[in-house]
Nucleic acid binder design. Structure first.
Lengths: 333, 333
DNA sequence: CTGAAAGCGCTAACAC
DNA sequence: GTGTTAGCGCTTTCAG
């Protein structure tokens, strides 16, 4: 039933050389006489020999596989990052084991242990909470890890990001500059470091620089979904907000449509600025102003960084910060 | 530098049993005396032993890893499928090696060979063209394969889908029923079997049943992107189409916004119906009517089917067809 | 119920 | 340049 698998041993026999030599030519080791190499290559071709990566992994202790932990595959923010990761991984001949965490703590732990068992050479982590347990699991993995588009609250792991504090400060400052005094802050859970430690900080900074008081009532924590945003419309009106900074584009689209459907005119009566510049910002009507981030690059750079780490290459700063921007579209005046 | 890895041998020694026994308890083999089992378990716990999946894979010839080939991670259609796949894979303890193909033929071949080298136990394929080369690569993999949300033109491989012909027929029939005579057919490449053999067939069927002539000029092939759709607006007006069936939601959003920005009123002057019922259909304004598909389920069922195949279980029909629907939203009258 | 031993297919010293 | 020989860490007969 199994097609007879041809092994390195078969090739060695047919080519009348040792396994070691075959291994050398397969791995591009230069210490092989051209004639021998050619002979081996011919046999490989003729037998259609294909190295078994599992055996190779066991013997060499390198699997050329990395683990990518992603909170939600269907969220464009993460899938854009993943695309960057994937492209660079391919370039360096790594395969990706993709593991969804659903932002669920136990699942994250489980997933990291799985990846560890599979002997991945490195891990890219997306997510914004790192418990002690999770940190331990990372350490057990005995593989380098980099945070992509996610913040390591304790600055222990390498990461690639934008300057979230500055970006949100800028965004909210724009809103303030246009006369808004009651600006809602709408994001996911405040348990996430990116919200609690970065975005909120930027928000407060923008307010206080203009001497606007901070009002708890304007802070909205919810999940990153269209529905959740849509449902927020009434509450936003109730607190008499005239603008909102939103931490996720799909969430922002929900806020936008919820408001619009409730008869609120955006941007005339309510301005919205969102965070990730994914395609949702172009599709909604009005289109949404947003912080811009080089999502693909964040993923790509993360993966590139990981390859260096896996090769024990010297790296400069382990926190790389990519540039962000602000893109005005129709949801702000 | 490497944390000393503890092996099955260490556990055996500490527990004063043989490796075989440790292996048995790790794998839940019932042929172990409870007392022995407990002793081993204790040692495992104490040493924090974790089985090496690579070694296991080599010895058992099962990697508990499957390959998932996906054309575009950032396309909601595929990422929703992937979520279904992922959930069920987790349930059955399989890991997923995700491989992007970008609908690129050579890359697909490369990817399948990679997965084969990594000894995946099975493959889930998303994509709609299967060349002879690719088919050969599948066979070489010596692992079962199922097509998810994708059509196997030659009906050789198991697949899970909806009835695309019927769905498109219904969708276009609605458009016809409302008096449209010039209905554009907008999809990706006609090289894809799903477009050429299924959707187009449904389109023609709907037209001919109402005795409407088929006009080549109404057929638009482009890529599945917002931009491409947006750019189509003028051409659509030029051919005096009054409605369009679109094969992808992002593409449809582009058509919608392109038309709207060109001053065409949807649905009053132009009706649009799209295909995948992803979140874009809710976010756009007007919202888009669509064929509805159980995307998550298609992914989940595909994975479930694959597990059966991997276990050599008997399966009924290898082509499973899930139900579709039609959801009226604002882009149709 | 348990152990001994032979691999799984490959890499990596180490000789020659 | 090339071959020999140990393993890598685990599963799996096969005995007993």
């Amino acid at each position: 039933m199994d097609k007879q698998t041809v092994t390195i041993y078969d090739v060695a026999r047919e080519a009348a050389v040792s396994m070691a030599t075959v291994s050398r030519v397969v791995n591009g080791n230069p210490n092989v006489k051209p004639a021998t190499r050619q002979k081996v290559l011919d046999v490989i071709d003729q037998l259609d020999y294909r190295p078994n990566a599992v055996a190779r992994g066991l013997a060499s202790k390198k699997t050329t596989t990395i683990g990518v932990i992603i909170p939600d595959l269907t969220n464009s923010y993460f899938s854009e990052l993943a695309r960057g990761i994937d492209d660079v991984a391919l370039m360096y001949k790594y395969n990706i084991i993709l593991a969804s965490s659903d932002e669920n703590h136990d699942k994250e732990l489980q997933v990291v242990d799985n990846l560890t068992a599979k002997q991945v050479d490195g891990i890219i982590f997306m997510g914004n909470q790192v418990s002690k347990d999770l940190r331990d699991a990372f350490n057990r993995a005995n593989a380098p890890i980099v945070f992509a588009g996610s913040v390591d609250p304790e600055h222990q792991s390498p990461s690639v990001n934008i300057d979230y504090v500055a970006a949100v400060t800028d965004a909210v400052a724009k809103l303030v500059g246009r006369g808004n005094r009651r600006i809602a802050f709408v994001t996911g859970s405040m348990d996430e470091s990116i919200n609690k430690d970065y975005r909120l900080k930027g928000y407060k900074q923008a307010l206080s620089s203009k001497r606007i008081g901070y009002d708890e009532g304007l802070i909205f924590q919810t999940d990153y979904s269209y529905k959740a945003g849509y449902a927020l419309a009434k509450a936003l009106q109730d607190v008499k907000a005239t603008a909102a900074f939103v931490g996720d584009d799909e969430l922002a689209a929900g806020v936008l449509n919820g408001l619009t459907d409730a008869g609120v005119k955006v941007p005339e009566d309510f301005e919205i600025i969102t965070s990730n510049d994914t395609r949702f910002t172009e599709i909604s009507r009005p289109t949404m102003s947003s912080i811009t981030q080089p999502l693909y690059d964040i993923g790509a750079v993360s993966m590139r960084l990981l390859t260096k780490l896996m090769n024990n290459e010297e790296i400069g700063d382990k926190t790389v910060v990519l540039p962000y921007g602000l893109k005005k579209r129709q949801s702000t005046k």
